[in-house]
């Protein structure tokens, strides 16, 4: 019974992925291109950096980078808590 359910779910998911793959837009033709053009035209004067990718990652989307740093900090804190050497007094 569980095997049959698994096969049905697997086939449905494969069908879903295949339809998505066949209906994908051609490469290089995004739906919305206003944002890309804005970044390419204004990144140099607004962030005063030559590397547009860095100016997006560290300036326009600074929140994203801060979140990634927070994820790493949380990982360190979690490992430190799980594998502490001495017991914590309560």
């Amino acid at each position: 019974m569980r095997n049959a359910l698994g096969i049905v779910v697997f086939l449905a998911f494969t069908f879903f992925l295949l339809t998505a793959a066949f209906e994908i837009r051609p490469f290089g033709e995004p739906v919305h291109r206003e944002m890309d053009n804005y970044f390419i035209m204004h990144a140099q004067e607004e962030a005063s950096a030559n590397n547009v990718v860095t100016s997006i990652v560290f300036d326009y989307r600074g929140f994203d980078t801060l979140g990634e740093a927070t994820v790493l900090f949380t990982a360190v804190a979690g490992v430190l808590m799980a594998l502490r050497s001495r017991g914590v007094k309560t």
Binding site: A47, A49, V79
Partner: peptide, 26 residues
């Protein structure tokens, strides 16, 4: 040039490097 981007880069780099090294240490 780049305003705060270089400072931000250095801080993030030190943070990520120390974080990974700290994970390995622990």
């Amino acid at each position: 040039s780049g305003g705060i981007i270089p400072i931000f880069n250095i801080a993030i780099g030190l943070k990520v490097g120390a974080g990974f090294a700290l994970l390995f240490y622990i």
